[in-house]
C-alpha cells in the first residue's frame, strides 16, 4: 500500500502533466530534524521533496493571497490554477479567503488529507528530557528516541495546542482526497481558559493583559500569519490616518491587540496560528476565544468561525443583542 506522501506525489505529477496547475504548495523538511516548512513547486521535479507526516506545520492558505490574490484579480478573474495540500484547519482558512472574495475557488485544486492532530516536537523533547533524534508516530503512541533515552509518549500529550481546539478535522470540498476523511473529531468546547480570565476582576484582568501586551514587540507576525487578516493594506500599515503610532506605549499595544482581535472577531477560524507564531508567546487564542465564546452565546450559533456568506457580526439587524 502506498503511503500518503507517495499518493500525493502521484497526484501532483498527474496535475502537472495534465497542465492543471501552475504551482503546488505543500511541505518539505526544514533545516532542523523535525521542522516541516512550506514548499512551492512549479513542476513535478521540484515537488519531489514534499512530504506528508504528523509533525507540526504552518498553515498554507495565507500564501494563496500572494500566489493568487495579489496579481490583482484574485476574486475576479480565472487564472492558472494553484494546487494546495489541505488539512481541516487550512480548509477553513481557504474558505475564509473565498468568502472574503480574496480568491476564487475555481482557481484552486485542493488535495485534502485527513488529520487527527499534529505533534509538537518541542513537547516531545521536553518530555524526553533531551533532544529527540528519532520520533516515530503510531496511531496513539509516539516513540521518541534521544541519544541517551527513549520513551513512549501518549500522542495526546504532545499534540499541538491548536490541534486540541480543532473545530474542523476534515476537508469538506477537496478536489482530490488522498484518504477518506475520518469521522469527525470530538469537538469539545473548552472555554475553561477564557472563563478563568473572565473570573478576574477588571483590575486583575487589565493587569494580566497589560503584562502580555507590554511584551509585544510589534513584529505583526500574528497578523501576517492570519488568513482572516487579508486586507490589501492593513490599517496598521497606513500612515494617513495613523491609527497606530510606532511608539510602543502600553496604550498603543492595547490599541493594536484589541483592534486586531476586533477585526477578526466572528471571522477567526480558530486555527491558532497567531498564537503559535508569536515570538513572545502572547496568548492571543484567549482573546480570540473570548470573542468566539461571546458570539456563540449572544448570537446563538453553534460554532463561530466556520466561514459563511452571512456571519453573526456581518449583518445589520435591529434586534442585535445589546450586550454585544
Amino acid at each position: 500500500m502506498m503511503n500518503m506522501t507517495e499518493k500525493m506525489l502521484e497526484q501532483i505529477r498527474d496535475l502537472f502533466e495534465k497542465k492543471n496547475i501552475k504551482l503546488f504548495i505543500g511541505f518539505e523538511k526544514g533545516f532542523e530534524k523535525f521542522s516541516r516548512i512550506p514548499a512551492f513547486a512549479e513542476n513535478y521535479d521540484e515537488a519531489k521533496s514534499m512530504i506528508i507526516d504528523e509533525f507540526e506545520t504552518p498553515l498554507l492558505a495565507k500564501y494563496l493571497i500572494r500566489e493568487l490574490g495579489e496579481v490583482g484579480a484574485g476574486a475576479v478573474e480565472k487564472s492558472e490554477r494553484v494546487g494546495i495540500l489541505t488539512r481541516g484547519c487550512d480548509y477553513l482558512s481557504i474558505r475564509r479567503l473565498v468568502v472574503d472574495n480574496i480568491i476564487l475557488r475555481e482557481n484552486l485544486v485542493i488535495i485534502g488529507i485527513p488529520c487527527n492532530g499534529l505533534i509538537d516536537p518541542k513537547k516531545a523533547n521536553k518530555l524526553l528530557g533531551e533532544e529527540a533524534q528519532e520520533i516515530t508516530v503510531d496511531e496513539k503512541i509516539v516513540l521518541a528516541k534521544g541519544e541517551i533515552k527513549s520513551r513512549e509518549i501518549n500522542k495526546e500529550e504532545i499534540l499541538l495546542d491548536r490541534c486540541k481546539k480543532c473545530i474542523m478535522s476534515k476537508v469538506e470540498e477537496s478536489d482530490i482526497l488522498l484518504e477518506e476523511n475520518m469521522d469527525d473529531m470530538e469537538v469539545s468546547k473548552d472555554y475553561s481558559a477564557v472563563e478563568e480570565i473572565e473570573k478576574l476582576t477588571t483590575e486583575e484582568r487589565y493587569e494580566f493583559w497589560r503584562r502580555q501586551f507590554d511584551r509585544c514587540i510589534r513584529c505583526f507576525a500574528c497578523r501576517d500569519a492570519c488568513t482572516a487578516c487579508n486586507c490589501r493594506k492593513c490599517i496598521f500599515d497606513i500612515t494617513e490616518p495613523e491609527m497606530l503610532e510606532k511608539t510602543v506605549a502600553t496604550s498603543e499595544q492595547f490599541m493594536f491587540h484589541f483592534i486586531r482581535a476586533f477585526h477578526v472577531a466572528g471571522r477567526c477560524t480558530a486555527c491558532g496560528e497567531c498564537e503559535k507564531v508569536c515570538p513572545v508567546d502572547i496568548p492571543l487564542g484567549l482573546l480570540n476565544g473570548k470573542f468566539k465564546k461571546d458570539i456563540e452565546l449572544l448570537f446563538d450559533v453553534d460554532e463561530a468561525g466556520i466561514p459563511a456568506e452571512i456571519e453573526p457580526l456581518g449583518e445589520f439587524k435591529l434586534d442585535d443583542p445589546v450586550e454585544w
Binding site: 476574486a75 472574503d100 472574495n101 490589501r232 456581518g314 445589520f316
Partner: peptide, 15 residues
Amino acid sequence: EKICVGCLLCKPICP
C-alpha cells in the same frame, strides 16, 4: 478603491 479589498463585508451590514 486603492485600499478596498472587495471582501464586501459591508454589503450585508448596510441597513
